[in-house]
Amino acid sequence: MKIRNRLKHSVSFIVLAIGALVVALPFIWMILTAVKPSNEVLLMPPKWFPSTLVWENFVTAYHAAPFKQYLANSIFVSICITAGEIATAILAAFAFSHLKFRGKQALFIGLIGTMMVPSEILIIPNYMTLSHFGWINSYKALILPWCTSIFSIFLLRQQFSTIPVAYYKAARLDGCSDFQYLWTILVPMSMPTIFSIGILKFINSWNAYLWPLIVTNTVEMRTLPVALAVFSNEGGVHYNTLMAFSLMIILPIFMLYLLLKQQIIKGVGRTGLKG
């Protein structure tokens, strides 16, 4: 019995290991290609490990495009979107969870209904709105439309509602205003949820492609994914620099992931299940 169990166990382990290898293969191959000298990239059969590590590929990729500008754009835009979304969602979620006002129910249902509409459909009218505002190809266009999310409002409202009302009463007796209560009590107590919302939003903004592609039309405004897509077309078959470029986009998210793995995974579990 014991031997059978152990056998079963090792079989499942092997299946998982092979699966993991397959899943990780594109990343492994990306890294290996990124450090290969140009003459080893197109060898057939391929050479797994480069004879020398060519770190210059990263430098080439970096210089082939105004990478610094793209990076700055991506960081700036992602941070602004994340901060904006969290701030607006916290405020709105507070109103929905703690304040009484007329039309609350109707408004909430309206918002939930809106959440069901796929964002791809909104692209056209939003593009037109922004072009009427004269905002096309600006940070405003990249950032503002994403500075709130009904889903996050919904999640945070749920979170705020789980905090016992006694805290609210206690704080009010102590002379704490609604606004102070929100920021000194509710927000710190809801940090795990806020953190997951923020981190996922950051990753999404960082990886966003279709929207930045549509609303930007000059090099100065491009974000990294858009730049990479353009670069892959212009860059031709220099796969090592292309992989180096790709890797540089993934790297910050990788690092974030390594650093905050548990929170991210928990956050996905949390946000996913409540959707």
């Binding site: 699966g19 993991a20 899943v23 990780a24 594109p26 990343f27 191959w29 990306m30 990753i203 960082w206 990886n207 492609y209 990294l224 994914p225 858009v226 990479l228 897509a229 892959s232 292309l242 992989m243 790709s246 890797l247 986009i249 993934i250 998210i253 990788f254 992931y257 793995k261 991210i264 995974i265 996905v268």
Partner: peptide, 18 residues
Amino acid sequence: QSVYFLPFITSTVSVSIV
């Protein structure tokens, strides 16, 4: 869990190119 999760958080553009 972490390995299988990797593709989900990486940029579609990057991994499409790979």
